[in-house]
């Protein structure tokens, strides 16, 4: 409950030490049509930590996020959520929320998109207005509240998409290349928003190809290759010199197979 209430008692949350393990994936395999796309992947994400997931196209980054979100069922392997806060386990939807590269917003106003999400997440009617305002403020979208969501700029749409995910009060925010199609200024605003969420106690798992973004964001880096974890390391160590050949090649822009 402490995590779930992050927007209201953000100070209290952020002062708490990040020790709990939100999730551990162990020997996860995902096959489709006989093709093994995730091949025995094991990975731990810590609460309130910022983990950047990198790797070449086809290495299984997006699949990993989707499996974590429960959008895909792994063929085998286990995913264990260990709850940092009591009572968290019964609220499966709140463990994580996901932001896609291309946001799918409803054909409604900006505020109504958040209203809808809050209704889905079971927020009481009387609470919704206040929460919508807080989320709009967080995304710096107050002035666009009544605007149809689908006419916003790409950056504005993605900010809305991020706070819509945060409406779930997740322990872990999953982001799948959220800035891949945005300009530098819009990218900076998304990064600031991610940073704000993190400071309020939300764990981050960010898939990105943007090495600069990875350096700015990561506490730790997980590098995937061929559906497996090639390397998992603290960010500073990783960027100082990756131990795996695959990651080193990737950072140098070399081809590696």
């Amino acid at each position: 409950m402490a995590i779930a209430g992050f927007l209201r008692d953000a100070e209290a949350s952020s002062s708490r030490a990040a020790i709990a393990l939100p999730v551990r994936m162990r020997d996860v395999v995902y096959e489709i049509a006989g093709k093994r796309l995730i091949d025995g992947l094991s990975l731990s994400l810590r609460a309130r930590s910022r983990c950047v997931v990198m790797g070449p196209n086809g290495s299984g980054k997006s699949l990993t996020l989707r499996i974590l979100q429960g959008l895909l069922q792994p063929t085998s392997g286990t995913i264990t959520w260990s709850d940092g806060a009591p009572g968290h386990a019964e609220r499966r939807a709140r463990r994580s929320a996901i932001v896609m590269q291309r946001p799918v917003l409803l054909r409604r106003s900006v505020a109504a998109n958040l209203e809808h999400a809050l209704a889905v997440y079971g927020e009481r009617r009387s609470e919704r207005r206040g929460r919508v305002e807080a989320l709009l403020a967080m995304a710096e979208l107050e002035h666009l509240a009544a605007r149809p969501a689908r006419v916003l700029s790409g950056g504005e749409q993605q900010r809305l998409s991020v706070v819509r995910a945060l409406a779930a009060e997740p322990a872990l925010l999953l982001l799948d290349e959220p800035t891949a199609s945005l300009d530098p200024r819009a990218t900076a605003m998304i990064e600031a928003l991610i940073d704000r969420a993190h400071r309020q106690g939300v764990g981050i798992a960010l898939v990105t190809h943007d090495i600069g973004q990875a350096r700015r964001t990561a506490d730790e880096v997980v590098f995937l290759s061929h559906g497996r974890v090639a390397e998992a390391a603290p960010a500073r160590a990783f960027f100082a010199g990756p131990r795996s050949e695959a990651a080193a090649a990737y950072l140098d822009g070399r081809l590696f197979y």
């Binding site: 989707r66 959008l71 939807a93 896609m100 799918v104 997440y121």
Partner: peptide
Amino acid sequence: EQLRSMGLSRLQAVPTLLWE
């Protein structure tokens, strides 16, 4: 994918889809 990621089952998504 978006609606399922929010925890709505296919049938639970029906009212949202009707309005959209």
